[in-house]
Design a protein around this nucleic acid. Structure first.
Lengths: 105, 105
DNA sequence: GCTATAGTTAAGCATTAATCTAATTACATG
DNA sequence: CATGTAATTAGATTAATGCTTAACTATAGC
């Protein structure tokens, strides 16, 4: 499977997902990103590092600033993973209907 | 926001993702699921609870066993989330997925 | 070289998460 | 009701996460 555990782990934090959302329309600097959150810059830097390690974002330095951008290919992989989950296996008939969920406890 | 943090958190664990993969083709009992993993049953039970809490699986009791099934709607929400991320432009309404209505006359 | 700015790395701490063993609940069956 | 089976809950332990402040690296401009 293409989708790495690091990517899923990275997406488990709401701050990081919001960072990705901010990057949807284009690159942003670390500072501009950090401004959107009620958190210290080192904390934000750590989140950037996690996202980078998961290959969910790109980074490049331009002078004093570092520009981060969304890496859509990994998001596409995640989407494919979710799609596979829904589709089921082609070799076996798809089970259409799961019975209604009675309170099982 | 449709996609809950619990769902993302739940997907952060590889064991839980494999459980979902096993449920792709239909329901399975807790015991049959647990057999696929090198882990104690209580540990597996905990993973089931996390998945249930995130609404990623359904559960129903049948006699002594509990059957778990995949809840595809939450996975669909996740897919939509990923798609939004890739799309990039928020101001543009979604127009590609118009419902199958009659042809404009 | 000196200073200011942008950003990361290091060290420490509190909280959460994953796992185990042991105990418990729920159901079936003789 | 006693026993066996399926599964969860409780309690404890260890590892991982997320956050902070303090220190460090890198670049720009003088």
């Amino acid at each position: 499977m293409r989708t790495d555990n690091k990517a899923f782990k990275a997406l488990g934090d709401p701050t990081r997902r919001e960072v990705l959302a901010l990057l949807r329309r284009g690159e942003m600097t670390a500072g501009d990103l950090a401004e959107h959150f009620d958190m210290t810059k080192p904390s934000m830097s750590h989140h950037f590092a996690v996202l980078k390690e998961a290959d969910l974002i790109t980074s490049r330095r331009d002078g004093q600033q570092i520009w981060y951008g969304l890496n859509t290919t990994v998001v596409q992989d995640l989407m494919a993973w979710a799609m596979d989950l829904i589709r089921g296996d082609e070799t076996t008939p798809i089970k259409e209907n799961t019975p209604p969920n009675e309170e099982a406890k």
